[in-house]
Design a protein around this nucleic acid. Structure first.
Lengths: 181, 181
DNA sequence: GACATTTATTATCTTTTGTTAATTCCTTCT
DNA sequence: AGAAGGAATTAACAAAAGATAATAAATGTC
């Protein structure tokens, strides 16, 4: 492992702070920074031309996200990303990240493992939960997988993430509660 | 670009043929080959301990898949992959793929672009369709995105992919038909 | 602390989906 | 061609979800 390259990489990483309600990425922009949440909670959401906002995903500590539409689709961001709590994130531009990591085989492999694999794994698990589970089962799995999100984010956002309405989520919760009691 | 490495890579790629009904990957195995469909159609499906098989995804020409559970989760495959038609696929083991591509910066970047980005893009588009669309809208989008799958694969598999039952898909179709007429 | 706003729950009604089963249609196989 | 098996459609009913509105609870603000 060539530590010079690792240091070059680390020098590109910036730590940034965001107040509650502040936008980390705005819909329509083309920036390709990668955000790694060190502390706080962020939601990515879409604002359709007509109708209400839809929250696509919630990101707590150790999770990462980026402007996927610019990075992979060569378009403008369909989503905005908003801090739901005071948030600190490590930020690096994707171009810098690729430039530095591709200069070293081991670093390239390491970063690929850390960045790419994590994102793909989470995406596949999520698709699996849509294909294999009912909305109620999906909610129970989400509580298991993200206990530290469920009690910090408003239910209406969690409902969006599960692909159901807030009213339906409330009913699922009461259904589960009465079943236990 | 160093063509020696590219040639080394190409020498590792094998072309394999499968009859209709043959399994390319079996549930429970740990192989990590990457399959690129050159001709034919493959379905990835899960067989739960109780209940019917659930088809997770359908792969026509130019699409690629792998044993994601071994590659990313370090487990055995939760899915089997079955040829729905006589199928030809390019096959390379993931370890070989990484070994060769990581030896060359340009090749690494190229392959990352081609393999990783495509898979992530498709996964995110699919999650978006679950979060933002109703089952009916999701079906219409699938027909648009995969016209060459819809008229080749049985509806029951497509229903699974969309996260609904075959009966429900049939009703959606008749609903759309009567609306047009 | 009191008011305003947002969020969650509950209620009502409509629509859709799941489930099961019967029927029809289509393939496949000998 | 005819029989057999599988797949799609349709029907009937139960359960769940969407939509809308009213109410209750929780948050935020001054």
């Amino acid at each position: 492992m060539n530590f010079i390259h690792l240091l070059t990489l680390l020098r590109k990483v910036k730590i940034r702070s965001f107040k509650k309600g502040e936008l980390l990425i705005s819909e329509g922009c083309t920036k390709t920074e990668i955000f790694f949440i060190r502390k706080g909670l962020v939601r990515g959401f879409h604002t359709p031309s007509s109708g209400d906002e839809v929250t696509f995903q919630l990101y707590p500590e150790t999770y990462l996200f980026t402007n996927i539409h610019s990075l992979l689709f060569d378009g403008t961001s369909k989503f905005s990303y908003e801090a739901l709590e005071p948030t600190k994130a490590y930020v690096i531009d994707h171009a810098d990240f690729i430039k530095v990591t591709s200069q070293n085989a081991n670093l390239s492999e390491l970063s690929q493992k850390f960045m790419g694999k994590r994102v793909i794994r989470q995406a596949f698990q999520r698709i699996e939960s849509f294909v294999l589970l009912s909305p109620e089962e999906r909610y129970l799995k989400y509580v298991q997988d993200f206990p530290n999100v469920v009690n910090r984010a408003p239910d209406k956002y969690i409902a969006n993430v599960l692909g159901i309405t807030p009213v339906s989520l409330s009913r699922i919760r009461s259904r589960i509660a009465t079943r236990k009691a």
